[in-house]
């Protein structure tokens, strides 16, 4: 792995974090959503750099392209595009405590990441191509879960239709 990759990795990682920070601090939902889309693009880049090209692709397609678009649709549908008058943010104390909790949480996660990682690398058979590496286990080992997921999606569709339907 060359420095180019290394540097790019850092750049995209830091860009993701910066976009995330921008996302949480934006008052306007539309701006926030766009910053989140940016974060997702950056993550997609990181996935690709970690040899998960397929995931990177569907990250763009599903997340940035579908889910976030739905979000934006809703924002626009409800006409929430501009910063609302009512207090969207908590007060200073709320922010400080939330920040404190965030620091503690981060520290904990990092400590656990250091402590608990088994560093033994099992011999992973290198897949012939990216799709096969995922499709093989997905349609063999995880077939049942895959099929159940389709039921989940069906349920979600029915639920969403039912909930969003205008009654009366």
């Amino acid at each position: 792995m060359g420095y180019f990759y290394q540097i790019n990795f850092y750049i995209f990682g830091l860009l993701a974090i910066a976009s995330a920070l921008a996302f949480v601090t934006r008052k306007s939902p539309v701006a926030a959503a766009l910053w989140l889309v940016n974060t997702m693009f950056c993550l997609s880049a990181l996935y690709i750099m970690m040899d998960a090209q397929f995931i990177g692709a569907i990250q763009v397609l599903v997340y940035a392209g579908a889910i976030m678009v739905v979000f934006l649709f809703v924002v626009m549908l409800l006409n929430l595009g501009h910063p609302s008058d009512i207090a969207d943010m908590r007060g200073t104390w709320g922010k400080l405590i939330a920040a404190g909790i965030g620091v503690v949480l981060l520290a904990q996660i990092l400590v656990i990441q250091r402590q608990r990682l088994p560093r033994i690398v099992p011999d992973v058979e290198a897949p012939r191509n990216v799709i096969t590496g995922i499709a093989q286990p997905l349609f063999n080992e995880y077939l049942l879960a895959f099929e159940v997921t389709s039921v989940l999606l069906l349920a979600a569709i029915v639920g969403a239709v039912l909930l969003a339907k205008r009654r009366g």
């Binding site: 974090i17 949480v24 974060t39 924002v75 207090a87 969207d88 709320g94 920040a99 949480l105 981060l106």
Partner: peptide
């Protein structure tokens, strides 16, 4: 590390924001 930071940002966001969509 990036993942941990992003996750924490998400948590802090949930805690501080009041807009359901955000």
């Amino acid at each position: 590390f990036f993942s941990a930071v992003l996750f924490t940002i998400g948590v802090v966001g949930v805690l501080t924001r009041r807009n359901a969509i955000i």
